[in-house]
């Protein structure tokens, strides 16, 4: 998928290791429709072993973000990396995703978004898209929102993720518009 012809800035969706290109394209479509930017799907990292923590058997997402931001191609506005590996930051048990606040890179993990085998693929995709929009929101300098239905609300569990809507609340929408302009 590459609709980035010309000189417009674009959002880069970057599957990590063997993450499905097909699913990455679907995520890219949804994110592109939401933010209105062209989307490019391109793997930037072949492996993320450098971020692996053997004590926790998880990957340190902050290290991956640093690496990704150093690899940003020209005209790339934001990078959304997608992985099926389990991510963490030191004070939390795990994260569904992390972003560089007002930065360029963010990452979403599908590892804990698809824990129920009976869950439909659409439901899992919906969760991944919610998390992608949430993390991209952080890269546009949006903070967590107290509104439980806002997509920028901080979720501790999948129940929280399913409960929140797939849109910004009116206040976050204004902040996002300011940031994008």
């Amino acid at each position: 998928m590459d609709n980035t012809k010309g000189k417009l800035p674009f959002i880069l969706v970057s599957p990590i290791e063997k993450f499905s290109i097909e699913l990455s394209v679907k995520i890219g479509d949804a994110v592109g429709d939401f933010f209105g930017y062209p989307i490019k799907v391109l793997p930037l990292l072949q492996e993320i072993d450098f971020a692996f923590n053997s004590d926790r058997d998880q990957y340190h997402s902050t290290l991956i973000l640093e690496k990704l931001s150093s690899l940003a191609p020209e005209r790339c506005l934001k990078i959304l990396a997608i992985t099926d590996k389990d991510l963490f930051i030191p004070i939390l048990t795990h994260v569904y995703g992390e972003a560089q606040l007002n930065g360029i890179a963010c990452i979403v993990s599908t590892n804990r978004l698809n824990t129920d085998l009976q869950l439909s693929k659409n439901k899992v995709l919906e969760r991944i898209i919610k998390e992608s929009i949430h993390e991209l929101g952080h890269t546009f300098n949006l903070r967590h929102c107290k509104d439980h239905s806002c997509i920028m609300h901080y979720c501790r569990s999948l129940e929280d993720v399913d409960l929140k809507s797939n849109n910004y609340c009116r206040y976050c929408e204004v902040l996002l518009s300011d940031a994008m302009n």
Partner: peptide, 8 residues
């Protein structure tokens, strides 16, 4: 700037 997880 994360989502998910609880404090360790």
């Amino acid at each position: 700037a994360t989502d998910g997880g609880i404090l360790l």
